[in-house]
Each structure stands twice: as structure tokens, then as C-alpha cells.
């Protein structure tokens, strides 16, 4: 089959909503785009464990401690499902992680913000996981089979994350004045970074067009961001929290909420490594990798010894 024919068959499958599977022919750029996007997503899960993980030892009661442990553990699982999906494309987990450690590969900029109070944990569940779910639900229909299947599994598990966050904030908002103030403070700090999670505006996004054509992405960054704002406003009202945007207003004509322009300079600075916690996050992951080196080596050596014993 000629390359042109293969390409035609590939595009035909995409048109007919047939999933592309690991052994199928695919354009090299499609493969590279997927590896980049999926691994970035996987890195976000893994780095995302850190700000929340900080609070496991300080969770205010045993139930919350167990919930937080289970949630952060899920994130490790989600990272793993996603790395698995990249490995079906011929990528290598360790190599991908090294790319993150050197700054070559990115992860979601939200995790470069610190989790300062217990209210941040609820807020991360509600807003950050809420924004992530908005993105992930759309990705359940992505054109690459293993990615779509991983997303389906992740979405099922993530809905607990958002609900526990909201429930936790509900407690604070119905609690003592200090608790409510703590929740509002977290909202003030996390609102804008949450909107930034959807990435640069469509006009600025370099990868968007082709990804939409290949149905890797099903909606643009701005579309998803708008859906998130629309969904979140009434949730904030029920909590009694104020969204820190004076221009947030329902627009009858558009049928959507209008909101202020994002501070793009902050966005790009954080992406480029100048967020409040970029260095700490990478340092923590690098430390885990290096301190785990001897453990992985030992297990390999042991497996080899046992295999030799067996065959001897």
C-alpha cells in the first residue's frame, strides 16, 4: 500500500469515528502529537499528587485523611494509565519522565501553585478537578483507542474527586466564619489559575487546528473554558462564595457568561518555569526517581537471579 493510500484509509477511519489502534498505520505527526499530549497529561497527574500530598499528614480528621489518600493514590493510577497509553505508541515511560525533569515536557501549570490551607484541598477537588473533568470528558471520544479507553476509566474515577472537594467546601462554607473565609481565600487564589488550565486562547494555540481535524481534541481551549465557567457559577452560588471577577456577567445574547481577560503574562511565566512552585515540584519528582533507582535495580537483579535459578 502506498503512503497516500494509507493516509486516506487513516483519515477515512477518523471520519467514520473508528478508533485508531496501536498497530494501525498513522502519520508520524499524529503519533508525536499524541505522545506529547498524553504524556503531558500523565505528568500533570503525577505532579498533581504533590500539592495535595502535602496535606495528607495534616488532614483534619480520619475520614478526610482516608479520602485524600485515596484521591492522591488515584492520581498515581491515572498517571499510570496514561503512561501506558503512550507506551502503546512506542514511547518509554522513563524517557518521558526524564523529559519532564529537564523541562522539555510540560505539565499543567496549575500544580505550580501552592496548597496553603486545608480549604485549598477542597478547592483543588472542586475547581481544578472540575476543569480537568471538563477536558477529560471531551477526550473520552478522542480518536486514539488506548487514550480514549484510559480517559473513560479516569473520568469514572474522577467524579469522586470533584464531589469530595465540593462536599469538603460545603462543610467550610456552612461552618465557622474562619472556615468560610478560608474557603473564599482559596477561591480567590485558584479561580484564575483554574481558567488557565484550558491553555492559551484559540488564537494563540499552536497545536489546536490539526488536533481538531484528527479528532484528538474534540473542542477548542476557549470552548472548554467557557463551558467550565458556565457550569461553575451556580456551584459557587450554592456555596456562597464570590468568584473574583467583577466582569463576570450572564450574556443573554451569547447564552454564556462573560468574564475578564486572563492574565496571560502570568500564564506564560508559569508555563516557562517561573511559577511559585515549579522548582520544588520538579525537584521532588527528580528526588523520587533518583532515590528509587536502587530499588528498581534491585528488583531487576533479583528477577534475573530467580529466572536463572529456574532454568538451571
Amino acid at each position: 500500500m502506498t503512503q497516500a493510500e494509507q493516509e486516506r484509509r487513516f483519515l477515512d477511519k477518523i471520519d467514520r469515528e473508528i478508533k485508531i489502534e496501536p498497530n494501525d498505520w498513522m502519520p508520524d505527526e499524529y503519533r508525536q502529537t499524541l505522545i506529547r499530549q498524553i504524556s503531558q497529561h500523565a505528568h500533570s497527574e503525577i505532579v498533581g499528587m504533590l500539592p495535595e500530598g502535602n496535606w495528607i499528614t495534616r488532614a483534619p480528621n480520619l475520614r478526610r485523611k482516608a479520602v485524600l489518600l485515596a484521591k492522591v493514590q488515584d492520581e498515581a493510577g491515572h498517571g499510570l494509565y496514561l503512561y501506558s497509553a503512550t507506551e502503546t505508541l512506542g514511547a518509554d515511560r522513563e524517557q518521558l519522565m526524564d523529559d519532564m525533569h529537564t523541562g522539555k515536557a510540560k505539565y499543567s501549570s496549575i500544580f505550580n501553585y501552592p496548597a496553603l490551607t486545608w480549604a485549598d484541598i477542597g478547592t483543588i477537588g472542586w475547581l481544578v478537578d472540575g476543569a480537568a473533568i471538563m477536558n477529560q470528558v471531551a477526550l473520552c471520544r478522542t480518536s486514539y483507542g488506548p487514550y480514549a479507553r484510559a480517559m473513560v476509566k479516569i473520568c469514572k474515577e474522577e467524579s469522586f474527586h470533584q464531589r469530595q472537594g465540593y462536599e469538603s467546601l460545603m462543610k467550610l462554607c456552612n461552618g465557622a466564619p474562619q472556615q468560610k473565609a478560608m474557603a473564599q481565600d482559596a477561591m480567590n487564589r485558584f479561580w484564575w489559575p483554574s481558567l488557565m488550565m484550558f491553555g492559551p486562547s484559540d488564537a494563540e494555540s499552536t497545536h489546536s487546528d490539526q488536533s481538531i481535524k484528527w479528532k484528538i481534541k474534540r473542542f477548542t481551549n476557549d470552548e472548554l473554558r467557557q463551558s467550565f465557567v458556565d457550569a461553575t457559577v451556580s456551584q459557587a452560588q450554592i456555596l456562597g462564595l464570590t468568584i473574583p471577577d467583577p466582569n463576570l456577567k450572564w450574556n443573554e445574547d451569547r447564552g454564556h457568561y462573560d468574564f475578564s481577560e486572563i492574565n496571560w503574562e502570568e500564564f506564560w511565566q508559569v508555563v516557562k518555569g517561573n511559577g511559585p512552585c515549579n522548582k520544588e515540584r520538579i525537584a521532588a519528582r527528580l528526588k523520587a526517581k533518583e532515590e528509587g533507582l536502587w530499588v528498581r535495580e534491585a528488583a531487576n537483579a533479583f528477577a534475573k537471579k530467580r529466572a536463572m535459578k529456574k532454568s538451571a
Binding site: G53, R63, A66, Q73, A76, G77, L293
Partner: peptide, 29 residues
């Protein structure tokens, strides 16, 4: 054990240690 969460020597073992931690917290309750 909860202190390990996010810092394990490999993702799979990170998850395993957290599972043990969760069992212990559950027993404690």
C-alpha cells in the same frame, strides 16, 4: 506511610504503599 504518597520509588509501588496506609487508617477508625 502517608508521607510516601507522591514520592515512591516507582508509581506502582507508590500506589501499593498508599494502599497499606489506607488499610491502616481504616483499621484505626
Amino acid at each position: 506511610l502517608g508521607e510516601w504518597c507522591g514520592h515512591g520509588p516507582i508509581l506502582e509501588e507508590d500506589i501499593a504503599l498508599t494502599n497499606i496506609s489506607l488499610d491502616l487508617i481504616g483499621q484505626a477508625i
